[in-house]
Nucleic acid binder design. Structure first.
Lengths: 106, 106
DNA sequence: GGGGTGTTTGGTAAAATAGCCAAATACTTT
DNA sequence: AAAGTATTTGGCTATTTTACCAAACACCCC
């Protein structure tokens, strides 16, 4: 594996990594329904607003969302909406995993 | 957000998190081409075999792969192959991100 | 300009992750 | 049963991530 390939795997992994936190995944899913301002997340998520802001920044750095300031609020939206297409398969993974565990008990 | 919802986001995020490491993503992609034994990864990946084994275990815990011992070797394969369908979109994220950076320079 | 609201940034402590080495385990071959 | 190969496990350290608090910043309204 050469240097460029390595860099590509690192970049791709970074996208998954960004979605690999419950709060960030939740926010990404919310954004699939259209843009949201930070204030809306602050109302719904039980965490300090600085924490929420930092999570949004991680999604932004990963290239998943983009932000726009309008007046007092900052609005975030998905930059590449297809990223959530994988969700049904992720749910399939979880189902399969639960099934494995059930089989183990039997 | 209730307790069950939280648990679900955590489980889904765990799948992304597992893929959020270059080595693990590489291994998952290799497995898309069919099962591989640990020894094959050991030959190709520049890391201690204990490290490789631990990465495979993380993929297993996440429900992405399953393993089977045959003779002296342990073979891993994708449990839910659709998980790599998202890759084209991940590449789109990276492209879009590079484009943003190019636009910034201009 | 001063006060108020929304958001980001900086600092810090706790927890999680990654990678290496050494040792243990599992199976095969002799 | 002894020796050899493949893999996992345990232990340790360095690094990264997470979350909170406090402070700074940005914008709006009076």
């Amino acid at each position: 594996m050469n240097k460029n390939e390595k860099a590509l795997y690192k970049a791709k992994a970074a996208v998954f990594k960004a979605l690999g936190h419950p709060t960030r995944l939740y926010m990404a899913e919310q954004l699939a329904g259209g843009e949201r301002c930070v204030c809306e997340f602050v109302r719904v998520i039980d965490a300090d607003f600085s924490t929420i802001s930092k999570h949004l920044n991680i999604l932004k750095q990963a290239g998943i969302v983009e932000d726009e300031k309008r007046g007092l609020n900052v609005y975030y939206k998905l930059k590449v909406p297809c990223i959530l297409n994988s969700m049904s398969c992720v749910e399939a993974v979880i189902s399969a995993q639960l099934q494995s565990q059930i089989d183990l008990i039997k």
